[in-house]
Every structure is written in C-alpha cells, then in structure tokens.
Amino acid sequence: MRLFRCAACEQLLYFENRRCEKCGHDLGYIPETNELAAVEREGDHWRALGRSKGLYKFCANAAHDACNWLVPAEQEGEFCVACRHNRTVPDLAIPVNLSKWRKVEMAKHRLIYSLLRLKLPLESNEDREGGLCFDFLADDPGGSTPKVMTGHDEGLITIALAEADDAEREQRKNDLGELYRTLLGHFRHEVAHYYWNCLVRDGKRLTAFRAMFGDETADYGGALKAYYELGPLPDWQVHHVSAYATAHPWEDFAETFKHYIHIVDTLEMAASFGMRVRPRLDKTGELGAEVDFNPYRACAIQQMVDAWLPICFSLNSLNRCLGMSDAYPFILGPGVIAKIGFIHDLVHDRVPLDVEDGPSPPPPPELEPAPMEAPAA
C-alpha cells in the first residue's frame, strides 16, 4: 500500500479516501494505473483530472459507500475488478449488516490491491468454474442455524460478518489463543488456499512445495484434530511463522503466504513515507534500514527481510509506548524466512516445475469448522 496525491490540489491522500478534504473533489481508484484520481462529472460519467481521454463510472457498490473503484465507462457490467468477485453479500436493509459489510469491503479491497500489484491471477466465477469468489454471511439473529464459519472451498471464500465486530473478533482471538486476528488477515490467509490451487497444484509445483512445506496428502482432518488436542511442538518457531502453521502443510503455506503479503504491503507503505530506521544507540548498524526499493517487484527476499526486521522492531517499540500489543508479534527464524522466500519466488514464477507428475492430491478441505479457524493477522 502507498500514499497518493490529489491531481487537483496536490493534497496527500490515503487509499480509503473518498473525497479530497482540501479541494472537495470526489476520488476514485483506477486499478489499471494504481491511481487514486480526482474526478469531475461529465454527463452520466466521470473524467479523471489530468487525463484527456477516457470516461469512467463508479462501481455499483459506491451507492452503499462500500467501494470507490472506477470502471471504464464502456465496460460491460456494473462492478469493479474487486467487487465482481462477490458472490453473496448480507441483507443490507439491516443497518448493522451494512456497517459491518463496509468494514469487510475495506479489507477485501486492500487484499485485491495486493493481488493486482503482484500480478497474480484473478479469475472470478464469471471467468471459469473454481474462480475466486466471496460469500459475506451474517449469523441468523434468532440462532436457529449454526454460526457462519470463515473458510474456503475450491476458490469460494466465506467470511463471517461477525468478524467485523471488534469485540467479537477479540473474543475469538482470546478463545483460540491467537497473537493476532484481523479481517485483512482472514482474507490473506483464505486466499492463500486459492493460490495453492492455482500456483502449486494446477501450476505443477508439488515437488518443490513438498520439499519446503511437507506432504499435503497427510490426513487434513486428523492433523487439525491432533493440533487442537496436543498443540504445536515446543520448537515450532524454528520452522513455522505461527503455531497454527504447524497443523498441516496446507495451513503452513496459507500462514506463510499471509505473512508474505503483510511484509510486502507494509514495506511499500514504509517506502511511500520515506521511512528510515537508524537507532542512535546501535553502533553496529544491524538495526538500521531504509526502504528504497519496490517490494512488489522481484527483488531479493533477503533485501526485504533486512528492511522488515528493523521496521518491525520500531513498530513494536512504538506500540508499547502507547500501551498496545506488538504490531507484529512474530519471530522470523531462518526456516521461516526460507518459506517466505519460496512464496516470493512462487508469485514471481521462479519456482521450478515438477519434472514429472506425481500422484494427484486430494481436493482441499471444505469450510473449516469454527473451532479450527486459522489465526488471522
């Protein structure tokens, strides 16, 4: 994620801004150019300032104040590249649903931003069966049906609307003994299962995956049951980014993918702010960092890690000064960094293909039951 600038008045803008508070122009995000554009109405459409050609329309979800992405005026369909992946939204006539759905959409749009910046495949069910799509579901207020479970099933990602309630999410975080749980983390974890399908299973990279993460054909249900009954091994932090990552190779991949997006997105924002870390008491320079590169490009993973660790130390220290928990309470040991490097190479198409097809793996599991939800960061 990065900062933006208003084309009309040069005011600094943030990704979620809908209106420039300095000049009053409406703002719309153009995903094709990664631009938050100041726009002016022209007939039934909108023109981006500074552009002599091309008219746009706002995504249909702008009517609910849930999206401000722009669509070329000539494009068929009323939804933007992010919202066309929505399969189900909650009953928006219920005010509390609308409020929570807006929070969910904010996290989803940040997810799609990252996927677009990484140039990852983004097929919806409109493109092909098994494409990426979302169900945002609210619990039955009467309690006559089971609570909605966050999970995945062959490209269909279900997000429980209850996760948009801060108190409810904090309670689940405490109940599950998690370090970190956010809506954005849910999206990044669950979408990783979709990209395991696309880039590993269908991309014929099972051999390299198994060498790094283990054999995914191991019984998934049994592995989760054992994890929740016995917990992770005492030395899990040597090779796993989170305790939940130890449950099964699928979850190890999803947790690592999630943290990779955390790192890339945060480093881009740090670069946008021109952040430098130079602790005065550090005579060795080991805690110094300057984000003077684009983490969304195929740079060296060690360059990213060398910048990430000092940035994290500073963020965590600042949070503690405010009486808050660490912003990033995780340890990145050599084994974890190697797995993050695998994800980095995978998204940039640098993981070798299988020499020959191995045994066909079973399909990914259906929706994960509520007690087994992955820790979200």
Rank of each mutant, 00 (worst) to 15 (best):
D282Q: 08
S99V: 10
E78W: 13
A164K: 03
I340N: 03
L49Q: 04
L206E: 11
P95A: 02
W236K: 00
T284H: 12
S314Q: 14
C321N: 03
W308D: 00
G323Y: 10
L70T: 01
A63V: 12
K258A: 15
C299W: 10
G335C: 06
G28S: 04
E74K: 07
G131S: 08
W250V: 01
A289E: 11
G231I: 14
V291C: 03
V241L: 08
G285F: 13
F213P: 02
A226V: 09
R320T: 08
L206R: 04
H152C: 04
A7G: 08
G285Q: 04
L3F: 11
W250N: 01
E290R: 15
N125F: 09
F134W: 15
T266P: 00
G335W: 13
D215H: 12
L233D: 11
F293M: 04
E78Q: 10
M275Y: 11
A377E: 02
T284D: 07
L122W: 12
R18F: 12
H186F: 13
D202H: 07
P232W: 10
E16R: 15
R87G: 08
G333S: 10
N34I: 11
V238G: 00
L315S: 02
D202M: 09
D165P: 08
R2C: 10
H240M: 09
P362G: 05
F58L: 07
Y113P: 01
N294P: 08
A93G: 13
V336M: 09
V291M: 06
C23D: 01
F330V: 13
T256G: 09
L98T: 01
R128C: 11
C312G: 00
A208G: 06
D282A: 08
G151A: 10
R117W: 11
A298V: 06
I261D: 01
H239M: 09
A48H: 05
L176E: 01
T256S: 12
A48S: 13
F187T: 00
Y113R: 05
D292N: 15
I331F: 15
F342C: 02
V347I: 15
L13V: 03
P232V: 07
A73K: 07
Y180F: 14
E163T: 05
T150M: 07
E76K: 06
G203V: 01
R128Y: 08
G143I: 12
N34R: 06
E356I: 07
Y220P: 04
D219A: 08
N294G: 04
C59K: 02
E105C: 13
I157S: 05
V241F: 07
L118G: 03
K173F: 13
G54W: 14
L120F: 06
A62K: 13
P375N: 06
E368L: 15
R2G: 04
L224N: 00
A254W: 07
N316M: 12
T158D: 06
L183R: 01
N61L: 14
V305G: 00
H193G: 02
A8S: 12
L70Q: 02
D44Q: 10
F15L: 09
V96A: 14
S325D: 15
A167S: 13
